[in-house]
């Protein structure tokens, strides 16, 4: 069934019919979400930006074959997830292993920098917050891929179980079970920081 009520799908159809401004509007609407997913998945800004660009290039090239089957965001995040997995594969094949400690030393990619830029709390509080952010990052990175994906989609992108199941290629029941395990894992890993 064709669902033209999805505004993004309409933009995609517009682009398919030759109007490039439809594509640019789509990119502007979704670039931050795609980048955010890639950033949390891959753990650094440079890779996340490259991955986000690759996602939109794939969308651009697939326009000719595009049909409105599912919600546009479901399709977009399926591409985003696959692209991020390819990036991880490439990284592993090249033998690039960045330890979590190294990553947390990187000022550019430190999520704590975001906090410092936007707020101005006392240094002790800032330090504590930065530690918590690094702990969250480590905890997320330590999750198995499917648990991490489920958390990113359901918790951060606020997608439904149905959409998440479609993106991950499994049942809704499986998504719930994966999320259950992810939540318990995260609780264990973050417990040290949360007990204070």
């Amino acid at each position: 069934m064709t669902d033209y009520s999805d505004r993004d799908a309409q933009l995609m159809i517009r682009f398919k019919d030759g109007d490039e401004s439809g594509f640019i509007e789509l990119v502007n609407s979704h670039k931050q979400r795609v980048f955010a997913f890639a950033f949390r998945f891959l753990g650094n800004t440079a890779d996340a930006e490259d991955a986000a660009q690759e996602v939109f290039i794939k969308v651009y090239n697939a326009a000719g074959k595009y049909t409105v089957k599912a919600k546009f965001t479901t399709w977009l995040f399926t591409i985003t997830r696959n692209t991020c997995l390819n990036f991880l594969d490439k990284r592993n094949k090249k033998g690039i292993f960045v330890s979590l400690d190294e990553k947390s030393d990187s000022q550019e990619d430190s999520a704590g920098l975001q906090v410092a830029d936007t707020k101005d709390p006392p240094p002790a509080e800032l330090l504590m917050k930065n530690e918590q952010i690094q702990a969250v990052k480590k905890a997320l990175d330590s999750l198995p891929e499917n648990q991490k994906t489920a958390v990113l989609l359901c918790r951060y992108e606020e997608l439904s179980y149905e959409a998440t199941a479609e993106i991950m290629g499994c049942s809704i029941k499986a998504v719930k079970s994966i999320l259950h395990r992810a939540k318990l894992n995260l609780k264990e890993k973050l417990a040290v920081f949360l007990k204070f």
Binding site: V27, Q32, F56, I57, A111, V115, Q132, L184, K187, L194
Partner: peptide, 28 residues
């Protein structure tokens, strides 16, 4: 603890993408 850990995830925010993203994408 479970509830707090779930809420704490919000702290991990990505940086904002720059305006040059779209230009660089279209060039590619």
């Amino acid at each position: 603890l479970l509830s707090k850990s779930w809420q704490t995830l919000s702290l991990y925010a990505p940086p904002e993408l720059g305006d040059e993203f779209v230009d660089s994408l279209m060039a590619k």
